[in-house]
Design a protein around this nucleic acid. Structure first.
Lengths: 107, 107
DNA sequence: CCGCCATTTGAATAAAAACTCAATTGAACA
DNA sequence: TGTTCAATTGAGTTTTTATTCAAATGGCGG
C-alpha cells in the first residue's frame, strides 16, 4: 500500500487523490510557502525571511511541494526561484489555488 | 511542542491554525465523510455504505472530525447521526466548506 | 582553480498519525 | 433482565511524516 506522498511522487499530470494533495498543503511551513508565492515568485532566502525555519528543513518541504507539482523551481544565478505551478496559477483568481479536485481560497 | 491534532482538541471557537484543520481533511476517509455530509446528515452505517472501511476505523476518523469541530453528532434511537458543523454549513454555498482560515470548494 | 554562498541531498532519528483488535457503551425490544 | 445491534473506546503496533545533522552540489567572483 502506497503512502499519499508516494502516490504524488509517481503520479502523472492529472492522476492524484484530493486527499494526497491536501496533505501536502496541511503543514504550517508548506502552507506558508504557498501563501507567500501567491504574491509572486521568490527565492528560498526570501521565503525564509518570512518563515524562519532551518534552511535544510525548508528545502525538504520545498521538495515535497515540488513533487506534488504545486510549485516550480528555476535558477537565477546561484539562487533558486520558486513559483506556484502554472496549472494552479492559470486558474487562480485572487488569493486562491485550484487543485483540480478542489479549490482553496485564502482569507 | 504540540501536534496539529492536539492543537485542535484543545482549541476554542476561533483558535486554530489553517494547517491543522486542513490536516484533518487531508485523508481519503475523512474527506469522504465530509463530501458525503455535503449532501445532508447521515448515520454511520449509511456513511459506511459509501466508504466501506472497518467500522471501528471509521469511528476513529469520525472522532477526529468531531474534535476538529468539522462535524456534529446527534442520536436517533440507536443510530448516531452525523452532520457538517453549523459554522461550516451556515457559510456553505454549493459544494464548499468555509473553514474560517480558508474556503474549500469541491468539484 | 579556490573559496564562498545558496541550496540540496541522504541517512538517521524522533514524532505523529493510521490501523487493528478486544472490550465497552447505549438504546431497543423480546 | 438478557440479547442484539450500532457505535465507540483504549491499548498496542505499524506505517508515515517531520526534523536534524553531516556532507555534497552548482554557480560565481577572485
Amino acid at each position: 500500500m502506497k503512502s499519499p506522498f508516494q502516490v504524488l511522487r509517481e503520479r502523472g499530470e492529472d492522476d492524484f487523490s484530493c486527499a494526497s494533495v491536501l496533505k501536502v498543503l496541511a503543514d504550517d511551513t508548506r502552507l506558508g510557502v504557498v501563501e507567500r508565492l501567491l504574491d509572486g515568485p521568490s527565492t528560498v532566502t526570501e521565503i525564509n525571511e518570512t518563515l524562519g525555519v532551518e534552511s535544510t528543513l525548508l528545502s525538504h518541504h520545498l521538495k515535497a511541494l515540488r513533487e506534488a507539482k504545486l510549485v516550480t523551481r528555476t535558477r537565477q544565478g546561484r539562487y533558486a526561484v520558486y513559483a506556484l505551478a502554472p496549472e494552479l496559477l492559470a486558474r487562480r483568481k485572487g488569493r486562491s489555488v485550484d487543485l483540480g479536485c478542489c479549490k482553496i481560497s485564502f482569507s
